[in-house]
Write a protein that binds this DNA or RNA. Sequence first.
DNA 1: CGATTCCTTGAGGCATCTCAAGGCAAGTGG
DNA 2: CCACTTGCCTTGAGATGCCTCAAGGAATCG
Lengths: 266, 266
Amino acid sequence: MSTAILEAPVSQIQNVPARQTMNSAPESPLKKLCSNCHLRDLCLPAGMTGSDMSRLDGLMFGRRKVKAGQALYHEGERFQFIYAVRSGTFKSSLTLVDGREQVSGFHMAGEQMGLDGVAQGKHASSATALEDTEVCAIPYAHLTDLAEGNFGTHVVSRLMSREIVREHSLMLLLGSMNAEERLAAFLLNLSQRLKARGYSASEFHLRMSRAEIGSYLGMTLETVSRTFSAFQQQHLLEVDKRHIRIIDLDGLTRLRDARALRDASA
Amino acid sequence: MSTAILEAPVSQIQNVPARQTMNSAPESPLKKLCSNCHLRDLCLPAGMTGSDMSRLDGLMFGRRKVKAGQALYHEGERFQFIYAVRSGTFKSSLTLVDGREQVSGFHMAGEQMGLDGVAQGKHASSATALEDTEVCAIPYAHLTDLAEGNFGTHVVSRLMSREIVREHSLMLLLGSMNAEERLAAFLLNLSQRLKARGYSASEFHLRMSRAEIGSYLGMTLETVSRTFSAFQQQHLLEVDKRHIRIIDLDGLTRLRDARALRDASA
DNA sequence: CGATTCCTTGAGGCATCTCAAGGCAAGTGG
DNA sequence: CCACTTGCCTTGAGATGCCTCAAGGAATCG
């Protein structure tokens, strides 16, 4: 069974906030300012003015490390924090009635998780670290309490709206693309996000398994694997297990958009 | 060509707010209070306390009628309003590169549209009336300006989070259900929403075409049609064009959950 | 070293798509 | 008032893309 990791006791996973509050120094190493963060242009503070930025700094978010395979939060757990990824990669997933998991997203540095919990006050999905990670825990209540003027509103709302738009495009992918188009779209999306973070856009290491990619893209792990092989044969990629080198970015892009362009000319 | 309607000039569609401001009476028939609205338990004010409710009443949202086939807003248009459906049915859709449309949702009385516009300040999808409709136009800026305490934040955020959760379940449907399960899920969802609005849960009229259902559910219109026929043969439904009568609600529910239950026992 | 996990590849089957034809209802014009 | 068009739906037949089942290899771990 591969579920052992998912069943790690909640108490063990959630003991980190306590540790933070025990740090006596007012400016603990675990609480840092957004304005100093190397992710400030990608994360919450993106596009913020000076006054909003200092307000954000006033919140002093706590940090928390999550080891590979451990959960940051579980579906159904009480919603208190929004999390911003500092380092490493997470997956979000839902557990279906039958126990299978459906992956609903992958999250890397500067991206936020947990926004789906606002509606019900409980997390609607689980977040699991795919490698050793660090996050900022942002108390949702602080963010809303801080809604003098329209600071908090805008931060949260913009993040959420972005999430809605992201899910739109995933629906689009699931609803109207075939296996090759889906995997191409996935890889191009990864590539672009890595590039925005200063990593190579053409060569990277996948943090997730074929099964997780398949779940996310709505196909079986075998089809993911076969499609990787097909891309390799078409000289679009070099694939070695989870190491990916994009050889023909344009070709991959054309492939992703192939159906659209073909149909448009019809 | 069937696109004539979609190409109706924007200016024509958007002249209603002007009409509203020309009504001189402070309590114009086009501006009504949320607290009096027959949809108050389903719409924005759902679950609100007295003070929040009166704050909401202070906003006095304008109304606007949209005829069948006309757009309420278009993808890319400047985002100013959130809309709450008062009567009738809308579809939300994205236009793909090739001109095809991808339907991303259907909206009925008490439901909100337009939240995907917050992220970019532009609408990320279009909303088109499937029959003659009426909406409340809620200026987004008013909602956020009004964020003293945490009133506005909560309203908008809860709506958005709900939207995220809704899209989760659609992704799940698109990623892991077959044609019969998808259509069953769709019909059961409609049935439930109609019931919540005081209509019959077992007999209703579809406002959308087979093609629109297919686009929403990620299948072709032919498969939608065939699946309707199959349901009829299984004595789950009676189908006459767009008129649907659910004969066996439990059977339909079992069918929707079939895969999950089967796999769970495995 | 055996057990386990993850990945790849093959073969066959099936669900869904594609293409095509025809029916029905409503609207339109002669 | 009838012929014709148009939009929407249904159904069939054939093609195909993806899934399922199965086997085996490679890397990792205790």
